[in-house]
């Protein structure tokens, strides 16, 4: 187990290093001098030099990479070109919307998908199964931002159950904050829940046709008992993979959904920064999201080991 853990940890660290290199180099090729952009065309050469130094734009590529990467390790993401405030602060504020939103959506998606997938698999071929499969087929095909717009039309504009957008802030109380994240979270969760339910169902059907299910039935377990005691945990392995992948889709998808609901999250920050050519903010947000994805994949690998004893002892 320890060896597996260390091996995964090493691979996590390596991925982070390579990802940071890719992001750094990609934005390194952008033409133009941010310092000149910030100060305008009439800037003096010496004030430019001072600003460049502040922004860490001097030195060789290698030096700048280590300065940037080292800063990030200490939680210093640099200074925004447009707002002249530390990027870490800007991201910190926004993260309090984006992260809860992604988690909320993930919880919703799992809560919907597991029962639906298990129910459909246990009643394969029945009307229940056909219904679940039909609904999820639609859920997979629906663009989430369009679904979000329709929900705004129905639940915010017509029924007035929710507000059409914006975030009340966590100061307004947990329930109120959660309520203002509900429509975005549902919009994010529905397509993911559909995918997850389908994976759950087909994975469960696969394991139900395994030899050891027949062995369990020969011991005297009923169909239901065999499903719960033997099939479900084995079926979880591909489902975990999908949950891991979904977290990254949810984080990225949140960028679009935040636009629909005018939520001041990371997504809005990214688009504002792109139009303002505030590249250091873009760079930092992308790195942060990639970091999140890599860490979640690491967590999924650990979850595999909990489910599957073969990973714990071998290798």
């Amino acid at each position: 187990m320890l060896r597996y853990f260390l091996k995964r940890l090493l691979s996590l660290a390596l991925s982070l290093v390579v990802a940071s290199l890719v992001i750094f180099l990609a934005l390194e090729v952008v033409p133009g001098d941010p310092a000149a952009y910030m100060l305008g065309i009439n800037a003096q050469e010496d004030t430019l030099a001072v600003l460049r130094d502040q922004l860490g734009l001097n030195g060789t590529v290698v030096e700048r990479y280590f300065a940037w990467a080292g800063g990030m390790l200490r939680g210093d993401f640099g200074i925004s070109y447009t707002y002249r405030t530390p990027v870490a602060e800007m991201i910190g504020e926004r993260l309090w919307i984006s992260l809860p939103l992604a988690l909320y959506a993930l919880v919703l998606s799992t809560l919907i998908a597991f029962p639906a997938g298990i129910w459909a698999a246990s009643k394969r071929g029945s009307a229940a199964d056909v219904t679940v499969m039909g609904v999820t087929q639609l859920g997979v095909a629906i663009p989430n931002f369009w679904f979000a717009m329709l929900m705004v039309l129905v639940f915010a504009i017509n029924l007035r159950w929710f507000s059409a957008g914006g975030f009340v802030g966590w100061d307004a109380g947990f329930a109120a904050a959660l309520k203002s994240l509900t429509l975005p979270a549902v919009a994010l969760a529905l397509p993911q829940a559909s995918i997850l339910a389908r994976v759950m169902r087909s994975s469960l059907l696969d394991t139900l046709s395994e030899d050891y299910i027949r062995t369990a039935r020969a011991k005297g377990l009923s169909r239901g008992q065999a499903l719960w005691r033997h099939a479900l945990r084995n079926a979880l392995i591909p489902v975990l993979t999908i949950i891991g992948m979904q977290f990254s889709f949810l984080l990225a998808g949140a960028i679009i959904i935040e636009n629909v609901f005018f939520l001041p999250g990371l997504g809005r920050l990214v688009f504002q920064s792109i139009s303002a050519r505030d590249l250091i903010v873009v760079e930092s947000v992308v790195m942060l999201l990639v970091f999140a994805v890599i860490v979640v994949n690491f967590a999924v690998d650990m979850a595999y080991a909990v489910v599957d004893p073969r990973l714990r002892t071998r290798r």
Partner: peptide, 13 residues
Amino acid sequence: LVFAFPSLLIAIM
């Protein structure tokens, strides 16, 4: 590594 960048992030970059 590419999987760690959802397509939207690649597009943003």
